[in-house]
Design a protein around this nucleic acid. Structure first.
Lengths: 225, 225
DNA sequence: ATTATTTTGTGATATGCATCACAATAATTA
DNA sequence: TAATTATTGTGATGCATATCACAAAATAAT
């Protein structure tokens, strides 16, 4: 509850810009929590009263689509979570769930609001982040709807390697059916495509362990479908 | 170039919050322009140096997808345009094009930035708007990918009636092939579905003139696909 | 260790929709 | 008013992929 935020080792570019005073406020008004895999951090449909700072771990942003769950994206610490859903609506419009073990800080919206108002640079960073996220979600949506499965699967694998794990070898943090919700396809198709990629020597697949063997070809598939 | 922004009849909730000083700055640093149907207001790929205030008219936000153009959404005055693309990237990540005759004000990013910094309430409103847009684009994306054509077409018709025209009778502001890019389908399918809706008595269709006859059933189709 | 439960692999089948191909309008421009 | 060009309607065909149906692993629970 009351650790010192100034010395938090998980500060982002944005949080480095806070005034001393704001750090004190943060320190006195946040709630630190640990979650294990599968735990709900933010729940769609509940009143949104907190912004969440993800200190450590991996989480998924997901929402109830008209027919099935859609995973919007995976996010990696350190980052803020739930800004859009907290500022944009009284009720959470999406859920956030821990994908690995995570550590988060809950910050009351009003405190966060106050800090935004008292720190221009911080507020500017947040605005920029929101803008970038929106651009990113435009791109994502265009890709999902226009590309076909192999292209989208290639994208996800590349994204995992480059954005999440920063390594060409990693273990899938989510199941194939979650992967299906992330690329808007069926669980069976995910299995088939992964099998194809493996057979074609693009990746090596052993259980959830994946190694990307031919990123160039994956990129081509990403582009051409 | 130098009309008085304070007395602009197109102020939004957000712009009502500006200080006298900021209004003067705005007044002295904006560029008023008129566009006709089809003209480009913001161009994907160009350097983004201006925020745009749409005073009058209808515009479409669209971007080059991997295979074809995708129309993200239609927007109606009064509203700001291009915030995400201007703050989120040095280069515009999407285009905005006039759908009807429009009047816009170009505002230099730096001036806009300055005004943001000097007007907390304004800045808060902008943040809220950005958040809401992101939520909206999540929902849109989930619908587009999960629903099938009839559902998405029903959505668009309802949206036109309620959000854009505030009337159950209106003329389609865009062609069927643009409509196809908006609901992620083919031009032919749009034609077919509109034909079906007409035949089934859900709408009456005469050229581009549409009247919604049975909104309840349209809603059902929107929900069930 | 032994069940129970979730996750994965793979074939067979069904279907929604894109694509192609033209004809028929409607809207511009000459 | 004729001549282009853009927009729309409609059938026939093909294909990507969802869905169904199980079996086989892998994990978790008892």
């Amino acid at each position: 509850m009351q650790s010192d935020c100034r010395s938090c080792p998980f500060n982002t570019r944005a949080t480095k810009m806070l005034s001393e005073d704001s750090f004190v406020q943060l320190s006195e008004n946040h709630l630190e929590l640990k979650f294990k895999k599968g735990d709900t951090i933010i729940k769609q449909g509940m009143f949104s009263t907190n912004v969440v700072f993800l200190r450590r771990g991996l989480a998924k942003i997901h929402l109830n689509g008209p027919y099935h769950e859609q995973i919007v994206r995976l996010v990696k610490a350190p980052t803020y979570l739930g800004l859009p859903t907290t500022f944009g609506d009284k009720v959470n419009q999406y859920s956030v769930t821990a994908v690995t073990e995570t550590e988060v800080c809950y910050i009351d919206v009003h405190i966060f609001q106050k800090i935004l108002n008292e720190n221009r640079d911080f507020s500017n960073e947040i605005i920029i982040e929101l803008c970038q996220n929106e651009l990113e979600s435009f791109r994502r949506c265009a890709n999902r709807t226009q590309k076909q499965i192999r292209g989208n699967m290639a994208d996800v694998l590349i994204e995992f390697a480059e954005k999440i794990f920063q390594a060409d070898s990693f273990t899938l943090p989510i199941s194939q059916s979650e992967l299906a919700n992330l690329v808007d396809t069926s669980r069976e198709s995910v299995s088939r495509v992964l099998g194809e990629f493996d057979k074609d020597g693009l990746i090596s697949l052993e259980g959830k362990r994946i190694e990307i063997l031919n990123k160039k070809s994956l990129r081509l598939i990403s582009q051409n479908g």
